[in-house]
Every structure is written in C-alpha cells, then in structure tokens.
Design a binder for these strands. Sequence first.
RNA 1: GCCAGUGUAGCUCAGUGGUAGAGCAGCUGAUUUGUAAUCAGCUGGUCGGGGGUUCGAAUCCCUCCACUGGCUCCA
Length: 605
Amino acid sequence: MLAAKVNGEVRDLTRPITEDATIVFHKWEDKEGKTTFWHSSAHLLAETLEALFPGIKFGIGPPIENGFYYDVDTGDRPLTAADIPAIEQKMLELARAKSEYNRREVSKAEAVQYFTEKGDEYKLELLEGLEDGQITFYEQGNFVDLCKGPHIPSTEPIKAAKILNLAGAYWRGDEKRKQLTRVYAITFPKQKELDEYMHLLEEAKKRDHRKLGQELELFMFSEKVGQGLPMWLPKGTALRTRLEDFLKKEQIKRGYTPVITPHIGSKQLYVTSGHWEKYGEDAFRPILTPAKDEVFLLKPMNCPHHCEIYGYRPRSYRELPVRIAEFGTVYRYEQSGELHGLTRVRGFTQDDAHIFCTEDQLKEEFLGVLDLTRFVLAKMGFDQFTAQISLRDPDNKEKYVGSDENWRKAEQAIIDAAAEVGLPTVTELGEAAFYGPKLDFMVKDALGRSWQLGTIQVDYNLPERFNLTYIGADNQEHRPVMIHRAPFGSMERFTAVLIEHCAGKFPLWLTPEQFVVLPVSDRFTEYAHQVKHQLAAADMRGDVDDRNETIGRKIRDNELKRIPFLLIVGEKEVEAGTVSVRKQGEGDQGAVTVAEFAAMVQAQL
RNA sequence: GCCAGUGUAGCUCAGUGGUAGAGCAGCUGAUUUGUAAUCAGCUGGUCGGGGGUUCGAAUCCCUCCACUGGCUCCA
C-alpha cells in the first residue's frame, strides 16, 4: 500500500485522519499509487543529487506518465551521461536506508528563511505564489523539500531506479529564463519490473518510423536537399498514393470539389489572411523577382488560395456548402530543434479542404467532417486516439484575430458538435489557431509522444478578411462560415504514425508489395514470372525474387521486408500449377492454385 | 532557437595521439537450392565540413553542418 484517497484527496498513508472519511487505499497497480511512488522517488533523486553535487539547486520534480523528473541547476558543472551510474547507485543506496517521508506544516516565513539560507532561488520563487498556512515541507533522510505531497511512507519499496535521460528545460517553461537540467528517471518496486519496462522501450524503438522508414525504403532525407525536407522513395510513394486515393475517392462521395493551387502566393495574399503579421518573421524568407517590389511567399497554408477560389465569382446560398479540397504541399520554417523524422518537417502535404457554408449549415458540416475523420481513422485501424478541443486563451486575446462574438460562436459550435456525437474530449485553453478554435485528433507514437493528426477548425475570421459573401434567399449579401479540416493532418505525419502503429506491417490494401514469388531455384524463375503476371492481371502488386540465392535466404530477406505473402514455387508447384503460400510472420500455409490465392487475397481486401 | 549528447564504408558498429577495421549489403565466381542467413574472392571511407594544436590527429581544441533526447514553438 502506497497512498490513500481520503474523501477524494490522495494523501499520505501516515497522515492522521481527523474527520469522518471515505477511504480508498492505493497500491502500485493504481495510477494514484504509481504517481505517489514516483513523486516520492523524485524526492529521493533530489536527495541523491544533493549528496553527490553539494550546492545543487532545485526547480520542480513532479511525477509524469512514465516515471518522474527533477529540474536542477548544477551551476558550472554540467551533468552528463557519465554521472548516471553513480546517481543510480547512490539512489538505491539511499533507498535502502528506509528513510521515512515526514510531512510538516510550516509558516511562509519559516519556509522563506529555510530556502534563503540554503540559497535556492527557485524554491523561493515558488513560495512567492503560495499562501501562508498552506505550505508543507516533506523531509526524508537529509533532504527537505517544499511539497504539498502526498508521499509513500518511506523509501523502502523503491528497489529499482533508472535515469532515463538528461535534457534542458527552461525554468517555468519560459524560453527567456534560465535553462535548467531536467533529469528524467523511473523507479519500480521490483528490479524485474524495471527490466520489463526497459525491454518495452527497446521494442518501441524497433517500430520507430525513422528506423522502419530507412529499412523498408519508404523515405529519406538529404543534407544537400535540406533539413526537414523529406523525399518519398518509390515504396513510400506507393503507400502514400494509396492513402491519398482512398481519401480522394471518399471525399468525392461526400461532395468535395478537388482543386489545384500553386506552391507560392504573393505577399499581399498573406497580409490579407493575417499570416504575414503573425508568422512572417518566422517563415521561409520571401521570394523576390526581377520586378521591383514584387514579393512572393512559399505557401504555409492552403486556405488563402482556397478563399480566393471561393471568391472568384458571386456565390448563391443555393450552392452552399462549397467544399474545396486539395492535397496541398506547404512549407513552414519550423525551428531546427523541432524537426523530427516525418512527424515534424518543413515541407509537407496536407489533405486539406475548406468548407464554406451558412451558419445554419455549420453544425451539420462539422458533424460530417467528424464522421469522415472517424471513418478514416477506423479504416486505418486507429482505435486509440484522443480528441482535443483547443480554445482561445481568454487572458491573451491579442494573440488571436476576430471579434469576441465570432469566437464565442465558433467555440460553441465545436463543443456542441463533439458532445452531440458523444466524442470524448479534453479541452485546452490557449491552443487554438490564431483565426479560430480547433478540434484535433491526437495519437501517440511508438515512444509515447503525442502527435496531432486530423484537425477540424471553425473560422469566422478569414471569410471576413477576404470579404467572402454569398447572396441569400433574401437577395442580401451574407458572410459564409469556413471550416478548415484535414482528416490525416499531413501525409508525412500520418504515414509516420501509421508505420509505427502497424510496425511496418501495413494492411494489405496499402502495402507497397503484397506478394513476392520465390522460385526454389532458377529452373523455376520462368514459372514464377508467370505467377506474377497472373496476379498482376488480378490487380495485385508484387514481384519475383529471382536472385541466385537459397530459398531460406529469400524467405528471410522478404520476411524482413514485411511482405504479407511469400509464394514459393518449385517442382511440385510447377507441375500442379500452384503456389505454396507463406504468410508474413505465420509460416507455411500450404499450396493453392494461383486463382485460389488471388481469390483469397481479394476476400481480405 | 536553447541545453546535453552523437557523427568512422550503403547499413550496424569497433578503433582515444603513431600504417583506417569487422559483420552485413554490393560486385565476381562456384553452388541449383523446399520454408528465416550456401561458400569463396573482390570492391568500397578526404573518419560530417572547415580551421587550429602537434614531428604526427578518426582520436585534443575552435567553428559550422546534420542527427538524437528534451525544452520552447507548431498557421
């Protein structure tokens, strides 16, 4: 037992209960138990660091989803990987002392005095935000920390510890302030659990899309081409093209109109849209021409172009909603430290569309987009995702364009639509786009990092900025509402997450190569090619591995390439007109005729 | 952009001041193969780029570039 929930509040097991209370005990298996365990471990880590590096100063040290961290200021002597073994060792040594975690209520003056004497300005700053009478210290061994708790009774159950990594982190998350060293770590009550966790991390690394992208020859980067500018190799292109075709077809069914727009636009376009003012300085530099004062920008978004398409002639209420769709490639100068495989790049293609509709149609259109997005995710086998509603930060309205009334309407439309379909959501203030609130679908990558995939945004503002109108039944001009949406988000990020989601074993309808025919020896190569052509005629994709290698080698190589079906052909198969089917990861499935195999695969598509 | 780390052959990696290495891949040849690596030979590197220290630098220092882990940012 690690902690107790008393009347809904998680507390120390050792803290006396002075009122009538409902009590729930938390063990390691509970989220609350782990959180308390890791929070206490953070204090143990701090005690360790203080013992090893006297004079070290402490920021904050909270538990996180997997483990905990502590932000520290080590002065002139940086922490490095070489320090890790000593830290881990000392941590366990201190844990074995079985120090009790003792809670103590202190006055603000007492707390300020303590940290002033200790010289820890970070704790003093934290104290500034706390009210007298609410302040508690926790003490274990030789370490005292400002902390509201709760904690486990003693360090005794902490049996295994691992420093996961060292990273920089700005104090209070503010890039203008000092950067502290963030020590990430995790602890367990048993060594075996730590071993299992480390094994899990290893397995996750194996499905990292950057690694699989290289192994499966899906995409590449080149220093000469530039940072964050992926190039899709033939197999990656085959995969991506199928994703695009799938969505294009579905969008046609749902009343979208495909368009194509250029990769650049005049600066004036982005002044109108507001992007110039908001992002001009942080974007790729403007493109100049021989003509004086002529300035173009690489397009960072497709919406301004689509607004121009909407506005190229008068629109009647009868033709709304207008749904303009484009797989549009955009370029954004992301900070160099942000680039990450295919998930964060500087040139990428959005499966973008902009829906222009009346206010009355807004809800239905939004619901339609929600349905499309969920249809797409389901088709790809994503059942684990969260939906995040991103609203404006009400305390920083100057970061956004548009009137309060428009924002109120837009935010309400998203909240209502999500509630209507029963979509579980979390709401984040301050995460909205500058022109409107968003509903984002978030998924996690193999290493637990969360990425935004599909996005739906309600926008009252760009239609105003572009002076977009339609003529209503009353023969008056009205302002349409705009929905920005991208079910995949971007082809790059979606592909990355898909690679990791299926560990490179793509669904049959998407995979670049569905089969490879493996002749047992070169006497059967001709038959192998016949098989391939028969299957190609049945609309299947694949090739012949006619290298002069043993069958065992060919099987191994093609298994590693995650080919769904290996078709082995030798003497027996040639005579019987069959193929021996070997399914990826599942071994020999026996012999069937080529037609039977084709039918079997068709049935699975 | 910031903090820390990494950069050696196509890939994975060894080499820490004294003649650049291994396995795999590739090429050539032999082998004609029955369900996850046949054998042999050969090729392949301005040790990320530039500058410096040194008799001598993959190795030490500076700088730039790229990548990795975070932070900040993300139209």
